[in-house]
Structure formats: C-alpha cells, structure tokens
Design a protein around this nucleic acid. Structure first.
Lengths: 201, 201
DNA sequence: TCAAACCTGACACTGAGTATCAGTATAGCG
DNA sequence: CGCTATACTGATACTCAGTGTCAGGTTTGA
C-alpha cells in the first residue's frame, strides 16, 4: 500500500492541535489572552511547554489558525468562477463560500471574534493573516482574466475587497450576529461603487 | 511668564529621540533589524539600555515614528477642504500634503522604505500604524459631511483610500522613486472607480 | 534658594520564542 | 515479526524584548 495521502501522523497532529486550542481558548476567555502564559497552557492541557510550542508558531496562532482556510477558500472560489463580469463582482461572489464557512457555527465564531476584537495583539495578527491572503488572490485573478489589468490595479481591488469583508465582519460582530453578514458585505462593496452610492455631498 | 506651549524638556526629548533614531537606523541598515538588540543600540548611542527604551515604546517604533505625522496631516487636510464633492475625491486630495511631506527628502524616505519592506516585523507595524490613522479620518469625514453616510460606508472608503496609498507607495519604492507617486495614487484610486476603469472582462 | 518634577543608569524580573538533546513511540518495509 | 527511519516528547538552557523599581542627579518654575 502506498503511503496514504493523509498520513496517520498528520491526522493525529491535527487532532492534538484542535484539542490544545480548545482548552487554550477557554483559558484565554476566562483569564484574558495576555495574562495566560505558555506555561499556564502547558499546565492546563497536560502537555509540556516545549510540546505546546511545537504545535503553534506563536500565541496568537493558537486562536487564529481556525481562520487559515479562508484564504484558500477565496482562491478556490475564484478559480471555479465563470468570470463573465469584472474583478469587483467576482471578488464579491468569492466571499460567499467564506460566509457559508463562518455561518456553520455562528455562536462559536462570535466567541472567537469577541476575544480577537478585545485583544489588540490578536486583532493585529488577524489583520496580518488577512493581508497574507492577498497575494494568492491577486495571482488567481490575474491568471483567470483574459486581459489582466496592471498589477497595482488588481492589488488595490483585492485589498479593497478584503477591507470590505473585514468591515462587514466587524459590524456583524458588533450586532452580535443579528445583522445579515451577506447584506453587510454588499453594503461595503457598494460603498466603493459611485454609480450606486450617489452622494449628497 | 506662563509655561511655554512647547517646553524646553519636550524640545530636548524630541532632539534626543531624533539622534538616537538616526544612529539606530545606520545600525539596522548595516547589520539587519532583527540582529540588532537594544543592548547594541545602547552601546552605539552611548546611552543606557534603560534610557533608550524610555524613548521608544518598541523596536519598530525606532524606525517608524517618522511616519507618525502622516495621520494628522490627512485629517488636517480634510478639515481644511471645501468638500464640494464626494468622500472619495476628498480623500484623494487629502493625500497631496502627504506626498509633499514624503518628497521633502526622497532618498531618505526610500532608504527607510527599503529597510521596512525587507523586514517583516517592520512592514507589519507599518501597516498597523496606517490602520491606526483610520478612525480619526473617518470621524473627520463624518463631521465635515452635511449628510454623513452610515459608519460602515465611510469606514470602507477610508480603508480603501489608505490601501490605495499603501499600494502606490509600494510601487513607488519598487521603482526606486523613478515613477511619480501622485500618478500612482491616481491610478490606485481610479482602479476602484468602475465608471473610469472599464474592464474587458 | 527651594521644592517639585523629571531624567538617568543600574538592576531585577517576566515571558515569548529558539535550539539542542536524549529517550520513546510509531509507521512502513522486508 | 523484527528492523530502521522518522517523528514526537519533555527537559533544559538560552537570547532578547519589554516592564518595573529605585536611588542619585539635574532642570524647572516660583
């Protein structure tokens, strides 16, 4: 038998990671992110500090690694898009699977966002993570397009789209999940479209 | 005599800060940002580690504090704007004084940007700094406008404008200052204006 | 001249993140 | 089944950023 594409070790590693993160998240919520040390987490999870640190590159990643799939989700959505219209509408559509992903368990996501938004260090890393998604998205858009625009043009559109998503997510959290995330994203995207959002001045 | 608005101590502090930063910048360029420790900087500047740390909140700030005035510059530009048209054009105009500020000494600014862009920790903090400018800009826009839009709408526009600036600055640096920064900013802003940038699809 | 405010260097401390190493468990192969 | 590669683990030691405190000295403003 050839080595299985998903090795047993990788599965185990994934499971351990999830369990460590689960326990750690409770600690963070109870005591505050900055107050909890790796030594505390080691004690709470029953694993050594060394081992804990081997599963996460830094403390913020213990919370934020859950959002890692989003970047790839966007890229894949763009790849499987018919691309009959412009970048902006394609980017808007590419966020739909992300919304689906977040809506799988809204109360869990809201709990995570609460912790993130009230912890500056986590907010900062969260923005970094979103920033890191951009290059792949830009590349995908440029490859898919029949007549790609200048790199700076595509980059700016992607950056703006990600900021629209971020702004919508922030408002959605403030509403404690009561407002509709898709509608908020639409509002954000329309805010940059002068043909739709005519201003009074 | 009433206490002078700019005290002698504040002046001194400002001068010391500038000198410390100047020496530190040379060290960073010569040895690499991450390789230089606060102990090294203390040695190079002839001041104690404690004192050095009292002048800067963190290592990144030693380099980035030079860009602090930009946020206020944008707000002031908006405040003194006639606001005869929409947010987007007002934001574009508000960047003109920033361009002037950066063009006072292009070679120095380019040297700083080189160090920043090749040091991930500095890039991240630089983005954080730009992010911190946003709330004040949003507030100014909302206060100035006769009929302000919803907060999320203004926030998204400000975020997009700042990303346009960042993208233009990055390209300007890549061109080693040969391209025109104002033109690059125009290109960025137009990339988000579908009435101007008609796409081929 | 005096007191309050401030600056400085020295020192001690916490905690994140890195690196190494010996011992152990496991996967895959003959 | 046994062998060997490889990966996981905990212990330990280390570097360095950043915080806090304290005593001694300097400046400021009255």
């Amino acid at each position: 038998m050839s080595p299985s594409p998903v090795s047993v070790r990788a599965l185990s590693r994934h499971a351990v990671r999830a369990e460590l993160a689960r326990v750690a998240f409770n600690e963070f919520c109870a005591t505050g992110f900055n107050q909890v040390t790796f030594a505390d987490l080691a004690g709470a999870t029953g694993v050594s500090r060394s081992t804990f640190l081997r599963y996460f590159t830094n403390k913020e990643d213990v919370v934020l690694f859950l959002f890692d799939p989003i970047g790839d989700t966007i890229v894949e959505a763009l790849a499987s898009d018919s691309r009959s219209d412009d970048d902006w509408h394609a980017l808007r559509r590419a966020l739909n699977p992300v919304v689906d992903f977040l809506m799988r368990d809204t109360s869990e996501v809201l709990a995570f966002l609460d912790l993130i938004y009230e912890t500056p260090a986590l907010s900062a890393r969260f923005r970094e993570k979103q920033f890191d998604w951009r290059p792949n998205i830009v590349r995908e858009l440029q490859q898919t397009s029949a007549a790609p625009d200048a790199p700076i043009v595509t980059s700016v559109r992607v950056a703006a789209a990600m900021e629209c998503f971020a702004a919508a997510l922030a408002v959605w959290r403030e509403s404690e999940g009561r407002e509709d995330l898709s509608t908020l994203i639409d509002t954000s995207f329309n805010a940059l479209d002068p043909t739709i959002a005519a201003q009074t001045g």
